[in-house]
Design a protein around this nucleic acid. Structure first.
Length: 505
RNA sequence: UGCGGGAUAGAGCAGCCUGGUUAGCUCGUCAGGUUCAUAACCUGAAGGUCGUAGGUUCAAAUCCUGCUCCCGCAACCA
């Protein structure tokens, strides 16, 4: 019966590929919870996709711009030395959080700068870049020009309405990108492809911005030099520089990955990814992204996370405090992907104790230690009854539902599916009560239990790689989806120890 | 003025796009059960007129309109 079950339930999942990107982080400040969150989210989406097919994951650091230059000056060091030291912080975070990227792009690297010039060249050849003299209100802080109706009188002179940052009247020669040319093209495109920008509220926002009209973009700066020079004392606009990191990441495989770009971004950089970037891509004759997903922001105990409030969460500190796997799980479970969420130590603790220690950890422990105590040899499933079948079926559904949720970047839905299946398994063990059974039934029940543990470890491997590795090593399983339908093959177990310890106090 | 997000049991959320089972879930509370397991696990109960007023519909938490309240829109910044 079990072999029939395996046969009838083996299904092939669509094996496609994706090029998934995290933003490149601005090195003007230290890493915080937000950087950790974005990185982990993309890492999970990446690792999940890897179970079924191909995925390429890029991330990096944005190291150019006037503010970086100024920070370096304040710290009295060479700009390159300054960005090197900041880069290290982000690099460390990747290791500390077990982020398995394929490419880490530093915008100050030669490779990237060459690529930016190459990209720039394409825009110029297309005839989308023209020289103009810009006169307008310039904000150093925003690194941006504003028009007359975008500024107002502040206490100490003119300020930009949108950001309240001081502006000064400036006339400078610079190059423009014909962004307006792409306004209607993008509008049409998005209206025909409503599922590119997610969540849908961000789609609406983008349509709104496009309908409001987008003027041509000043894409060079001459007020500072820390960037990619395009001649005559001009430096390429940071966003043109930064966005093209995605091309740099693909190196020689642009043709291979370009059709499968999935950008995961914070909601603050929607405009750059949903409008500027696609326009630039069109200009350079590249394919457009197939998904742009903007996630929400963290508050801390319901307050905005900010330096002045002094409530910025240090990612290294909490990783160290709660554990890597635990924290990866908790921050993803804490908010619906796309919505804002709140960080609260009490809730993290609570979640670790209940969902991880009590449900997932304890379930694993009660089955493994039972088997460890009673059996010397392999426990394979050979016959199953109705209840066993129902339970295994439930895990298959979990797999399918998780798969479709993750196709839509619904990480929280996937995690909830797994938690539900784990709870079902606990119910099953209680109902079957193997501790009361004769040997044949005990073997049957525990073999099913082991199978469930294997599946749970497999499907959670994108979120908690270390925990999964620990279990799957015992059971002799590879981390790919074939293992789901392959029976396990293990020796006498080592004495199992709890996966997650409870946090007391 | 404006833009965006939100309002669902004591707390935190899902569901809303693609209206249709007794509106779900987690935590907490209360009462049982169980002992394989990390004082864990299982069962059951109490607790919501889904912010408000209308509209569309055979049917609305779900679609439409008005209103009220809350959060964000200085800097850092995912």
């Amino acid at each position: 019966m079990y072999s029939d079950y395996v046969k009838s339930d083996s299904r092939s999942f669509e094996s496609d590929k994706q090029f998934i990107t995290a933003p490149i982080y601005y090195v003007n400040g230290s890493p915080h919870l937000g950087h950790l969150y974005t990185s982990v989210a993309v890492d999970i989406l990446h690792r999940f996709a890897l179970l079924f097919g191909e995925s390429f994951f890029s991330i990096g650091t944005d190291e150019h711009g006037q503010k970086v230059e100024q920070s370096a000056q304040r710290n009295k060091c060479e700009t390159q030395d300054y960005v090197d030291s900041m880069y290290i912080e982000f690099y460390k975070l990747m290791n500390a959080a077990n982020i398995k990227y394929d490419a880490f792009v530093r915008t100050s690297s030669k490779k990237h700068k060459d690529n930016v010039l190459n990209f720039w060249d394409k825009l110029c050849k297309k005839g989308d870049v023209y020289e103009g003299a810009y006169s307008g209100w310039y904000s150093t802080r925003d690194e941006q020009f504003y028009s007359e109706d975008e500024v107002s009188d502040g206490a100490n002179g003119k300020i930009a309405k949108i950001s309240n940052s001081p502006v000064e009247w400036l006339e400078e020669k610079c190059m423009f990108f014909k962004l307006s040319k792409y306004q209607n093209i993008l509008l049409d495109y998005y209206k025909k492809n409503k599922d590119i920008i997610k969540p849908s509220s961000r789609y609406n926002e983008t349509i709104g911005m496009l309908e409001a009209g987008i003027p041509d973009l000043a894409v060079t700066r001459s007020r500072f030099s820390w960037g990619v020079s395009c001649g005559e004392g001009q430096v390429i606009y940071v966003w043109v520089d930064a966005l093209s990191n995605y091309i740099t990441a693909m190196e020689n495989n642009v043709d291979y990955w370009i059709n499968d770009m999935i950008h995961i971004i914070g909601k603050d950089i929607l405009k750059f990814h949903a409008i500027y970037w696609p326009a630039l891509l069109l200009s350079a004759d590249y394919a457009l992204p197939k998904r742009i997903y903007a996630h929400g922001w963290w508050t801390v105990n319901k307050e905005k996370m900010s330096k002045s409030l002094g409530n910025v969460i240090d990612p290294f500190e909490i990783l160290n405090k709660y554990g890597i796997d635990q924290l990866r799980y908790c921050i993803m479970k804490e908010m619906s992907f796309g919505q804002d969420g709140d960080f609260d130590h009490e809730r993290i603790k609570n979640r670790i104790n209940t969902e991880l220690a009590n449900v997932i950890g304890n379930l694993t422990q009660r089955i493994l230690s039972f088997v460890w105590k009673e059996y010397e040899e392999t426990l394979e499933i050979n016959s199953i009854d109705e209840n066993d079948y129902e339970l295994l079926k439930c895990w298959d559904e979990c797999l399918e539902n998780s798969y479709s949720a993750m196709k839509e970047q619904q990480i929280h839905v996937y995690l909830e599916e797994v938690r539900k299946a784990a709870a079902k398994t606990n119910q099953y063990v209680d109902g079957a009560a193997p501790w009361k059974c004769d040997d044949a039934n005990k073997r049957r029940i525990l073999s099913v239990g082991i199978e469930c543990i294997k599946r749970m470890a497999l499907i959670l491997s994108p979120v908690m790689p270390e925990m999964s590795k620990k279990i799957l090593n015992i059971l002799g399983c590879e981390i790919n989806i074939d293992s789901w339908f392959k029976s396990i093959n293990y020796r006498k177990l080592d004495k199992p120890s709890p996966l997650f310890s409870r946090i007391i106090g």
